[in-house]
């Protein structure tokens, strides 16, 4: 008679389904399919899709690539709380390498609004979390994987990169920065 007793009908499979119950199942199924289609639709028509492009790398190899970009395009050095960061302004379309490590994001990039860049993400030690604020874009960063994402900043301003994957005692001090300027400046 109840859910804690065996079903009173031996052949319960043949019992008819309540009409409203069936309606609800149909609605829920349609909604599930709609949500499935939505993800694919966004891949085709949406502008915010996480790239799949990823390479196996090593910490040394990745750090060397980042260093090369920094050496080539550094425009000035920023000093924040006695810590110096190169501020790097690469041309639109270039590969830019962001290093996540205990406990900073390095270097600081200065990008132009409306231009596209190939942002590379990798970690030097533990995993880190790339959390771009106040945009609120959050991406997992692994050591030994080079994740390449084409980004197109749509608004000028000062952005922060908060680490949101726990990475030890100094985790809360791991905040980086990114500048986006209006085009033509």
């Amino acid at each position: 008679m109840s859910a804690i007793l065996p079903p009173s009908e031996r052949i319960w499979w043949n019992q008819p389904i309540d009409k409203l119950e069936f309606t609800w199942i149909a609605i829920a199924l349609v909604w599930s399919l709609a949500m499935f289609v939505m993800m694919i639709w966004w891949h085709i028509y949406g502008n915010q899709n996480l790239a799949n492009e990823t390479y196996k790398t090593t910490k040394e190899m990745y750090a060397a690539k980042a260093q090369a970009v920094v050496d080539q395009y550094t425009v000035r050095t920023g000093t924040e709380a006695e810590k110096q960061f190169p501020i790097v302004k690469p041309p639109a379309g270039s590969d830019i390498y962001m290093i996540g490590r205990l406990w900073d994001w390095w270097p600081i990039y200065e990008l132009e609004q409306g231009k596209t860049y190939k942002l590379h993400l990798s970690a030097m030690d533990y995993m880190h979390g790339f959390s771009l604020q106040p945009q609120n874009i959050n991406i997992q960063v692994h050591p030994n994987y080079d994740h390449v994402i084409k980004i197109t900043p749509n608004q000028a301003g000062v952005y922060s990169i908060v680490c949101n994957e726990y990475c030890g005692i100094g985790h809360h001090t791991m905040v980086g920065r990114m500048y986006v300027t209006k085009g033509g400046e």
């Binding site: 106040p134 001090t173 905040v175």
Partner: peptide, 18 residues
């Protein structure tokens, strides 16, 4: 955007606090 597993949302001691 506030992070999980994070000791201090004021980022005490961070050179470039958000």
């Amino acid at each position: 955007g506030v992070s999980r597993r994070h000791w201090d949302m004021a980022f005490a001691g961070a050179p470039m606090a958000y």
